[in-house]
Amino acid sequence: MAAHSRDPLTHPEVRQATTGGYAAGYGVSVILMLGALLITQQHVLAYPTFLWLISSLVVLSLFSQAALFFGLGLSPVQAWKSVSLILALPLFVFTIGLSVWMFNSLYPRTMPAMNMNTSQPTLLQ
């Protein structure tokens, strides 16, 4: 095939690699996780606020990696990867969210004799 005879290093997915983009993705991800670590170590936030803040930092970090590491976007080369990721995201949310939600009330209903005063909140509490 003609495509095989072309220089593979001229392919758009090879040409998309840039030092600046990767450095930005690395810097943003490390700074966001450092911020999450500092928030955790201060122990000043209520649990729901803490969880929302940490989750927001994770989402921002994943967005930056999707754009700056994976180079996802609407370009013809990357469009189908972006579409498949967007279609897969609800599956992650359903798998994790519904599992935790379903089991959240199981313990109080099935093990009433046990002490409910747990020292650590669950994901939904």
Partner: peptide
């Protein structure tokens, strides 16, 4: 090739989703 591998990674991500779900359920004092 890269799209095929990307789709494999999406299924791999679902494996991690299952493990995160199990961890979320079992991360309880009980």
């Amino acid at each position: 090739r890269t799209l095929g591998f990307w789709l494999y990674m999406m299924s791999d991500a679902l494996l991690f989703a299952g493990l995160f779900a199990a961890y979320g359920v079992l991360d309880h004092a009980y």
